[in-house]
Design a protein around this nucleic acid. Structure first.
Lengths: 235, 235
DNA sequence: GCAAATGAGTGAACGCCGTTTACTATCGCA
DNA sequence: TGCGATAGTAAACGGCGTTCACTCATTTGC
């Protein structure tokens, strides 16, 4: 690892200037407002210059989405680490942080999770390799849950009710966490579905017909879910 | 109601031709591929002619989204009515039909639920007035559940655990269905969250990292939810 | 039956956009 | 000092939504 040359410094500065401009446009005008010409205008440049740094607009947006996902993951990891040593507290903190970030950054949430372009997606089909941002997001939630199960296996609902077909269908998830019984994997997915469903409905304003304060609903559903993981510990 | 004039017939025919073209572009190229010029080209016309029928591209897409939502609702109502007289069977049929339609029409699902443009949304903030397509979608699921509760109130989880804040937050939903206890309203929302979350994750390919066969997971989660509504009936 | 009004459609234009190409000036290194 | 790599430019192409002035057929009212 050698010191970056002057050229390299200028280049990375330009790259981050471009991405800053893209994000500014994203936040003020939505994903559609990101355009090479507008970014270049803001920087006092012409549009073709950006092609020295990104092969296309789509590549730029993809890169930006990756940064945003990283930012979200750091936010979540910080919240988890600040929540104390109890895995269940870590789950509460991480879930609340996920909602908070999403509600405060609705446009960014849309870019990362909204499947706006093919390829811009927090969940690539194959997110197995280490360092993959999708896997990183998953791990923030999975790690405390696995630790909770390791410390004190809780009485899992539906024990023994999961049939062979579902067991086989869950193969990708189970390969990554062979230590978990299939019922726990199932419970985990159900929790993630609830979390993702509630947050995206709130971000997209699809709960207003039913609920005035989405946070109250979120906290209640979160508590109900965690109760399932808390086999008679008397909390 | 008088018979439509020749002019009116030609006009409605042109309108539906335009929307057919828009949908064809939507299905083959995604929401971004809908363009006035492409629609006009397919019809052997020029783009400005479409402004005789729609005030803007956005209005056209909004109209198309409304049609698609109606189509989905009809699909769901047909499935519900075909599921027999038992409310719980109706819920199974409707939920499965929702997943089926969404998986088979992923681009349409995206246009209706994906919040692509401000205003294109199955869930307007105020969907109270009768005939509203958003309310119609809700009713397909709510009606059987209300009927189930009317026939045989089931032991509801969390009975008495819902605090005043959540009760107040659920006001919009409860005003529409005052006969339901707040715990049932809460359960209903939790079911819808699961349904919507699972289906949109499947449509957006955000489950591939965990599951090979999303239908198996869907059926399992659906069964687990319905079990909560089925207080000891021994089904 | 004929003139006026209405409606549908066209072509040209404006200002956006992504992207490519050819060209120029600058920077870093030998 | 000179040379290659790099960053930037201007011009152009084709596509887009939208507006405007205009033509032509159809309908309507007298």
């Amino acid at each position: 690892m050698t010191a970056p040359t002057r050229r390299e410094r200028l280049r990375t500065a330009a790259v981050s200037d471009i991405k800053d401009g893209a994000r500014r446009l994203l936040v003020t005008g939505g994903p559609q407002a990101i355009s090479l010409r507008a970014i270049a205008r803001d920087m006092g440049m012409t549009a073709p210059a950006i092609y020295r740094y990104f092969p296309s607009l789509e590549a730029l947006v993809l890169d930006l989405a990756g940064d945003l996902l990283d930012e979200l993951c750091e936010h979540l990891e910080a919240a988890r680490d600040a929540a104390g040593a109890e895995p269940i507290d870590q789950l509460v903190g991480t879930a609340r942080a996920f909602r908070r970030w999403s509600v405060r950054h609705p446009v960014e949430f849309r870019l990362v999770f909204g499947n706006l372009m093919p390829g811009v997606d927090a969940f690539p089909d194959d997110c197995g390799y280490p360092g993959d941002p999708g896997a990183r997001l998953g791990d923030v939630f999975i790690t405390p849950l696995v630790e909770l199960w390791r410390r004190r296996p809780f009485p899992v609902p539906l024990a023994g009710q999961v049939d062979a077909g579902l067991t086989e269908a869950l193969a990708p998830l189970r390969e990554k966490h062979p230590e978990l019984p299939v019922e726990v994997a199932c419970l985990m997915l159900s929790g993630w579905t609830m979390l993702y469903g509630l947050v995206s409905m709130e971000v997209y304003h699809q709960l207003r017909w039913a609920v005035t304060d989405p946070e109250a609903l979120f906290d209640a559903e979160l508590a109900a879910f965690l109760q399932q993981l808390d086999g008679g510990s008397g909390r």
